[in-house]
C-alpha cells in the first residue's frame, strides 16, 4: 500500500482507492459468496440450532420444548451405542496414520517408481465410496466372500464380518483405512519434501543409519503434517455415513441396528423418520463432540508437535 504512494505517475483518486477508501467493487465481488453463505450455511446453522430445542412435526410449525430433545437423546441407549461405534471407528481409522507415515517415507527413499506407487495408493480415493462399500461387502461376505475362503485355507474359521454386529465396526475401519491412505500419503509426502536433505547427509556423516534418521529427523520435522492429518482423519471419521449405508443398508441386515454411527442416526431421524427437531439435536451434539475432541488434540499437540 505504501508503494502506491511512491508510485511515479500521479493518480490521486486511484491511490486512495487502493489505500484507505472503500472499494465498491469489493462489495460486488463478495456479494455472491456472502449471499450463498448466509442462505445456505449461516441460516441453516441457526435454524438447526433453534430446531434442536423444538418439537417439529412433519407438517406445520415447530414448538419450543426446552431441552426435551437433549434429555431424550442423552438417555437414549441407541445414541450411546452410535457414539461408541463412531468413537471405536475413529480410533481404529487413526491406525492408518502410522501406516501412511511409513509408506510416505519409503516412497521418498526410492529413486524409481514413485509416481506409480502414489497412483496405486491413491486409487481408492478416486473410487466412488458407494462402489468401494459394495466391493468390500462382497469380499467380506460370510458365505461366499473371498476373505473367509482365504482364511479357511490357513485354518481360521470365517465370520459374518458385515452381518454380525460384533465385527461390523472393524470391517468399516479396514475399509476406512484403505480409503484414506492415499490422501494421508500425499499430505505427508508434501511434508517430507520440505525436510532439507542436508540434515540427512550431515547425520549419515555422523554414522546414523536410516532407522535412526527416521526417528531423530523425519518424525520430529514431519510432526506438524502428522498433526494436520490426525485432525482431518478424526473429524472425517466422526462424520462417517457412507460405509454404514452401503455395506449394511438397502438390505435387511440384522447387524444394522447395532452398527449405526452418529451421522447415520442423524440421517435416519431427519430424512427417514422426519423427526427434524430430534435430528437437529443429534447434529448439534455431534458438533460439540467434534469441537471437544479437536480442542483436546490441539492441547495435546504441544507435547509432541515440533514447530521450528
Amino acid at each position: 500500500m505504501t508503494s502506491n504512494v511512491s508510485s511515479p505517475v500521479g493518480r490521486p483518486r486511484r491511490r486512495t482507492g487502493l489505500g484507505a477508501r472503500t472499494d465498491w467493487w469489493a462489495l460486488a465481488m463478495i456479494a455472491p459468496a456472502l449471499i450463498g453463505l448466509a442462505a445456505l450455511y449461516l441460516w441453516p446453522f441457526v435454524s438447526t440450532f433453534l430446531k434442536s430445542f423444538m418439537n417439529v412435526p412433519v407438517f406445520g410449525p415447530g414448538k419450543f420444548n426446552g431441552v426435551d430433545n437433549y434429555t431424550k437423546l442423552l438417555t437414549d441407549p441407541e445414541f450411546w451405542q452410535a457414539l461408541g461405534n463412531t468413537a471405536l471407528y475413529t480410533v481404529l481409522v487413526l491406525i492408518g496414520i502410522p501406516l501412511a507415515i511409513v509408506f510416505a517415507a519409503l516412497i521418498q527413499q526410492v529413486s524409481r517408481g514413485r509416481a506409480v506407487y502414489r497412483v496405486l495408493f491413491f486409487l481408492p480415493v478416486v473410487t466412488l465410496p458407494v462402489a468401494v462399500g459394495m466391493v468390500w461387502r462382497f469380499i467380506l461376505n460370510g458365505d461366499f466372500g473371498i476373505l473367509n475362503f482365504v482364511l479357511s485355507l490357513v485354518g481360521i474359521p470365517g465370520e459374518y464380518w458385515v452381518a454380525d454386529a460384533r465385527f461390523t465396526i472393524y470391517a468399516f475401519a479396514v475399509v476406512g483405512i484403505w480409503m484414506g491412505l492415499g490422501v494421508n500419503l500425499i499430505i505427508l509426502g508434501a511434508g517430507l519434501q520440505s525436510i532439507p536433505t542436508e540434515l540427512y547427509e550431515a547425520s549419515s556423516l555422523d554414522g546414523a543409519n536410516r532407522v535412526q534418521q527416521f526417528f531423530s529427523i523425519t518424525l520430529p520435522l514431519l510432526s506438524p503434517s502428522i498433526f494436520f492429518v490426525t485432525i482431518l482423519t478424526t473429524i472425517s471419521a466422526f462424520q462417517m455415513f457412507d460405509l454404514v449405508f452401503v455395506m449394511l443398508g438397502s438390505v435387511n441386515n440384522t447387524a444394522l441396528p447395532d452398527s449405526k454411527t452418529i451421522v447415520y442416526l442423524f440421517y435416519d431421524a431427519a430424512f427417514v423418520q422426519f423427526k427434524q427437531g430430534f435430528a437437529a439435536t443429534i447434529a448439534i451434539v455431534l458438533l460439540v463432540i467434534i469441537m471437544i475432541v479437536t480442542a483436546i488434540q490441539f492441547r495435546l499437540q504441544k507435547r509432541w508437535v515440533t514447530y521450528d
Binding site: L40, P44, F45, S47, T48, K51, A283, I284, L287
Partner: peptide, 13 residues
Amino acid sequence: VPSQLFLLGQFEL
C-alpha cells in the same frame, strides 16, 4: 462446522 449441521436447512430451502 461439520456439513451435517447445514443439511436440514439446505433441504428446507
